[in-house]
Amino acid sequence: MADGSQLAFTPAVEAATLPMWEKVKHHVTPMEWRLQAPLIAEINRLKREKDAVILAHNYMTPEIFHGVGDYVGDSLGLAKEAAKSDAKIIVQAGVHFMAETSKILSPDKIVLIPDLLAGCSLASSITGADVRLIKQRYPGVPVVTYVNTTADVKAETDVCCTSANAV
């Protein structure tokens, strides 16, 4: 559908989105669902047509998480799922560093991010230049960064940790 205004809550849309409705009905009102379900059905149709998958971070809203997310989880887990997927297009519902991580693990795939302004304050708090300066000031000290950093920072660190592998 070329025009989003043509999307309607039809019996076909209702049937196609019923499994998702069952997952979100305690978090989304029926009135909201009547507006969201046609979009969800159309997004899912386009994913099949374009050979795409959507990675939905744990903090996404219920209709995204349950309605269109093919893989759901934390940022590193999503990037790993992107790498295992046979899809040609990866849509990263998240922030820039997540899309970068997905692209690093899936260099031959197209990685898209729906919101070019989606950022992370933690990722913005340090740059690759900052890490190079730390290494210059403290030669030989291993640099460990959290996964919520840019590709530029990851390229300069010795170890990238997550909450799952920090120990």
Rank of each mutant, 00 (worst) to 15 (best):
I40W: 00
S85E: 03
M31P: 00
K84Y: 01
L76Q: 09
V111C: 07
A87I: 09
S163H: 01
S75D: 08
N165G: 03
T162C: 05
P30V: 00
L46Q: 14
S106V: 07
I134Y: 05
E32T: 06
A37W: 01
T127Y: 02
V131E: 06
D3A: 05
T149G: 09
E63D: 14
A166M: 12
I54G: 01
L35P: 00
F65L: 12
D51R: 05
I104L: 15
N148P: 01
F9E: 08
K88R: 15
Y59F: 05
H96G: 03
S5F: 03
K135Q: 06
G69M: 10
E63F: 11
A79G: 14
N44K: 12
H96L: 11
H57V: 04
G67W: 10
Y71W: 12
A99S: 10
R45S: 04
I104H: 14
L35Y: 08
A93F: 09
V159F: 15
I43S: 05
P107D: 02
A56G: 09
E100I: 02
V141E: 15
D108L: 09
P142S: 07
L35E: 11
A164K: 14
F97G: 04
A15M: 06
L39K: 15
Y146F: 04
P19Q: 02
G94S: 07
G69Y: 02
G119C: 06
A99G: 13
P11R: 05
K50F: 10
A16N: 00
A123M: 05
H96N: 13
G128A: 11
P62R: 01
V91K: 11
K50C: 06
A129M: 10
S121N: 13
K109E: 15
G94L: 09
V167M: 11
A41H: 09
E100H: 10
S75A: 12
A15R: 12
A118I: 12
P139A: 12
D152S: 14
A129R: 12
P19F: 01
E81S: 12
T61H: 13
P11H: 03
A164C: 06
M98Q: 14
T149L: 12
K25Y: 01
K50T: 13
R137G: 02
A151W: 01
D108K: 15
A164G: 04
D158H: 07
A166V: 11
W33M: 05
S102L: 08
V131C: 06
A12S: 08
G94D: 09
L112R: 10
A16Q: 06
T150S: 13
Y138V: 08
Q36K: 07
Q92R: 06
V141N: 15
Q136S: 10
Y71L: 13
R137D: 01
N165Q: 03
E49P: 02
I89L: 05
G140T: 00
M1E: 08
